[in-house]
Design a protein around this nucleic acid. Structure first.
Lengths: 189, 189
DNA sequence: CTAATTCTGTAACGAACAGTCAAGAAAAGG
DNA sequence: CCTTTTCTTGACTGTTCGTTACAGAATTAG
């Protein structure tokens, strides 16, 4: 019935995601996004409404790509302590492999945008809550909470992961991050 | 010999500090800073050179006002476990009392500016390292490390504090933050 | 008082900002 | 073929950005 869209929406959001992660919401201009995605200004506005719309799409994509698989992994992995250990080390790997000092988009969005944008806030909150649920279920089922509320331990783990992202923005050192993960794991039974 | 400066430099930096904490580096315009400090554009540039100069002054002030006293407290407080417990709860108090969802300037600077500005990086790194030193000394002296390297435990504590700031940006809930602090404290002997 | 110096306030700079719009190009229905 | 619909392109909007320049006010030295 009409002309088909030339650019790949997914690919554009992916590119925008990296741009926002690198320079934040305020620090990324529409021109930057045009260059990063290879999509014209007009098309960008037609597809996403405005800068915030594209940002929200990027945050959603980050959730789908990184958080949801993690939740799945937590749901079916049974040796819980080893699983959580592996997840923390994976975070370290990801940070070190990436090389750039930029925090993940979740942390960046939480710090920069969540206080100002309710849409961002509700998304970050939902993703964090889902991850906490997954951690809490696993910890509760296998009695790793040492008498504490599994939800509190789950929150603690999420805080540790967030904190490691911040620490990595300052010094992305593998040994230090690994040691931090090991100490945190000591809080589990 | 010449006209004396009319505005209070300290007060101006203090005001700029709050502005930067609220809206970040990129999100705070010179006009915002003029309004926040009550100092004219020209005077601001004469005193601090440019936007980055004022930002660095704000980061320095944050360090002097919040990090240095903490380091002093760690140096002379002997019941280490209770001291650290109190410090973590103080962080919670500060976050909750503040009410605003904004992360502290250290975390904000680490996430937003440290990857792009070497001057910011070196400052945040130095402050974090000093705090780690203070924690590590205390933990080492009093054998709270449970056989681990006291430095690793200190790094872990810093990461926990950073993480709590991020968590607070999403949900500044006293009960949740307190519980997180308690779990983290479980890593000490 | 005058001269020298340094601050303050404001106007102005070019560049970059987010967002709009109209005209052309491409696809599908008839 | 032509019409209709939608996407793309690029120029353009007015505004705001960080920074500079300059005139005038305030202070001190001589």
């Amino acid at each position: 019935m009409a002309r088909i869209r030339e650019f790949d929406t997914e690919a554009a959001v992916e590119a925008a995601m990296w741009a926002f992660r690198r320079t934040g919401f305020e620090g990324t201009s529409i021109q930057d996004l045009v260059e990063a995605t290879g999509v014209g200004r007009g098309s960008l506005y037609a597809a996403f409404g405005n800068k915030e719309g594209l940002y929200l799409a990027a945050v959603d994509r980050y959730r789908d790509k990184y958080a949801l698989p993690l939740i799945e992994e937590l749901r079916y992995g049974l040796p819980a302590r080893e699983l959580i250990h592996g997840i923390l080390l994976d975070v370290v790997d990801e940070i070190v492999a990436d090389g750039s000092r930029h925090a993940c988009l979740m942390v960046s969005a939480a710090v920069e945008r969540a206080p100002h944008d309710p849409e961002v806030r509700v998304r970050i909150r939902a993703t964090t809550a889902s991850l906490e649920d997954a951690f809490a279920d696993l910890i509760g089922e296998q009695g790793l909470a040492r008498g504490r509320d599994p939800r509190d331990v789950a929150r603690f783990l999420m805080t540790t992961i967030h904190g490691m992202r911040v620490t990595a923005a300052i010094t992305p050192d593998r040994a230090a991050l690994t040691a931090i993960a090991e100490v945190a794991l000591g809080c589990l039974a």
